[in-house]
């Protein structure tokens, strides 16, 4: 993601960040993306989540 795209995502989220704040967040964004990539390994299409829907609502 380019810095412009990164800024667009934050703007769309409704956050009012200064340019300086966006610049700092963009500088660590690759670290978050590395975590996202680690949490996206090859998994079978049918792999279930760790959270479950239960029709018996409490």
């Amino acid at each position: 993601m380019t810095k412009e795209e990164f800024g667009a995502v934050l703007d769309r989220a409704g956050l009012k960040l200064s340019d300086a704040q966006k610049t700092e967040l963009f500088s660590v964004y690759p670290l978050l993306q590395a975590m996202v990539a680690r949490a996206h390994p090859e998994m079978p299409r049918e792999a279930e989540m760790s959270i479950m829907f239960n029709a018996e609502v409490k």
Binding site: V9, A13, A39, M43, M49
Partner: peptide, 15 residues
């Protein structure tokens, strides 16, 4: 704010 719905769901599958 930059995470997608699929990022979250994938993380719960990995969990």
């Amino acid at each position: 704010a930059t995470l997608s719905a699929s990022d979250y769901v994938q993380a719960t599958r990995r969990r």
